[in-house]
Design a protein around this nucleic acid. Structure first.
Length: 246
DNA sequence: CCCTCATGATTAC
DNA sequence: TAATCCTGAGGGG
């Protein structure tokens, strides 16, 4: 589930394992030019929304976006036995990570990184993110709240599963607009639950039942049993409890 | 085995 | 709004 919480989880894990060390970088699949990075010191691995950025000493940054299909696999130490189709492989003699089927894996210079960052709204998992700015961007977005939450320029890191569950927790129908108070409540819910999700490695919308969802991809609401409404909001499938989300 | 759909985002129309 | 990227899981035949 490559939404923001997972990217932050990957960033934390890879930063802890690799940052400050000289790393080996390769592209067994061949679709990424690892030359400029191999043998350099990795300064940091950070997540911004659904994006992962590797800061490399004496080289551009590496920008990774998993899209819907990308995933990281840990694969032991260097030299690893990477899975088939590994586009980006990074590691040391203590730990290595393989990137499979990402939508983006590219070198990004300073201006490119800056452009990426300015294209994104506040990230609920960024401790420095501004709640006021987050509320402003939701209020300023065109269209219903369900569409706004999926726009990475509004909030960075929310995907379809989080959208469904956060709007359920807030009791808000995705097809309508929200006021500032509701936007603030949604932000607080996002900050809290995405952190739970980053720690757990999955969407967590009910800490008492971390493997369950309230409405996402369900036939019936897990709280009240009503038939879940399936519709299209912002071009993606929305799941709504018609009783509890108004 | 073939078809459809997916936790995403850009591009073209 | 639709097509595209072109992987993987799941369901029907």
């Amino acid at each position: 589930m490559p939404e923001g919480h997972l990217l932050h989880r990957h960033a934390r894990e890879q930063h802890a394992a690799l940052a400050g060390r000289t790393v080996r970088v390769a592209s067994p699949q061949g679709r990424f030019d690892a030359g400029p990075f191999d043998g350099h010191r990795l300064d940091a691995v950070t997540a911004v929304g659904k994006n992962l950025l590797y800061a490399v000493d004496g080289a551009p940054a590496v920008h990774v976006h998993l899209g819907m299909r990308g995933l990281f696999l840990g694969c032991g130490a260097w030299p690893p036995a990477p899975p088939r189709g590994t586009r980006f492989l990074i590691g040391t003699d203590a730990a290595a990570f393989a990137l499979i089927a990402p939508s983006t894996c590219e070198a990004l210079d300073e201006a490119g990184v800056a452009a990426l960052l300015t294209s994104l709204g506040p990230d609920p998992l960024d401790p420095a993110a501004s709640r006021e700015e987050a509320v402003r961007r939701v209020e300023g977005a065109r269209g219903p709240v369900g569409a706004a939450l999926l726009e990475q320029s509004v909030w960075a890191g929310i995907g379809n599963a989080w959208r469904a569950e956060l709007l359920f927790l807030a009791g808000v129908d995705p097809a309508r607009r929200v006021d500032g108070a509701e936007a603030g409540r949604l932000w607080d819910l996002a900050v809290h639950h995405l952190e739970l999700g980053a720690a757990a490695g999955q969407v967590v919308s009910d800490p008492a039942a971390p493997d369950e969802r309230w409405v996402y991809e369900r036939d019936t609401c897990r709280r009240c049993g009503a038939a879940v409404r399936v519709s299209s909001v912002g071009g993606r499938t929305a799941y709504t409890c018609p009783v509890e989300q108004t």
